[in-house]
Design a protein around this nucleic acid. Structure first.
Lengths: 119, 119
DNA sequence: AGATTTCCCCTTGCATAACAAGGGAAAGTA
DNA sequence: TACTTTCCCTTGTTATGCAAGGGGAAATCT
């Protein structure tokens, strides 16, 4: 289980988790698997990262949890999006897109600065 | 000077700074202005964020600095990319693109999970 | 039966780093 | 004189991702 050393995760973890729950409630273990698969093995969440984040999101009222049984008949805690969480998902998705576009503008900037002030 | 409340900055600050120096040496104040302009006012670096980052990058050997005079004849510390910094810029740019693509895959995923294992 | 793996939950402590909020100084401008 | 702009920096706070642990129950393998 080699780690990917992606330090970018900060700031995007929450929106990834919220998105993973947009279809149906999932337990923590399933969330990591879904995100891993949907990202083509690029995003590998550590459990020490995931569970505190779930707790955090629940304490903010964005998630709600309930104990149940997994597909394998194991005891598991299922998380679902609250309506507040759905709203937050939309906000954060938009924020990510804006931020990502802004970074791309800077990283793809080709010409020298030539700071010309239109007056 | 309303702040933009973009919490995503974590992890991308370094590559943004490195990129801003790819054309010519700049002093700190000019770096914030360049990034702000190139991102269409989306990325507003706080000075308390910038200067520690510059120090950090210099201590890693990615930047080198030299005192000089700004366009306005003020004393200013100019930073330039070292060759190690140029290499790091390429690595981090590629890492950003990979990470950004991975996040987009997850956030844009449209279909329910339907985890079908090809065996 | 015993051993191993997989599935699932969680906690503690650490390090990093972005930010708020300060302080300072020199040059221009009104 | 007072104010703004340009430039530099530091300290303290807070958030959070991660490494590194621990635990337990069910399935599978030998």
């Amino acid at each position: 289980m080699e780690s990917s050393k992606l330090e970018f995760l900060r700031g995007t973890l929450d929106v990834l988790i919220l998105k993973s729950l947009v279809w149906e409630p999932l337990h923590g273990y399933a969330i990591t698997g879904l995100i891993r698969r949907q990202s083509d093995e690029a995003l590998l969440l550590e459990e020490g990262t995931l569970y505190p984040a779930l707790w955090r999101l629940e304490s903010k009222g964005l998630l709600a949890s309930e104990w149940g049984l997994s597909e394998n008949n194991r005891k598991a805690k299922f998380y679902r999006l609250t309506s507040k969480g759905k709203r937050q998902l939309q906000l954060e998705t938009a924020a990510w897109e804006a931020y990502s576009a802004a970074v791309s503008k800077v990283l793809c900037a080709a010409c020298p600065p030539k700071q010309q002030e239109a007056s």
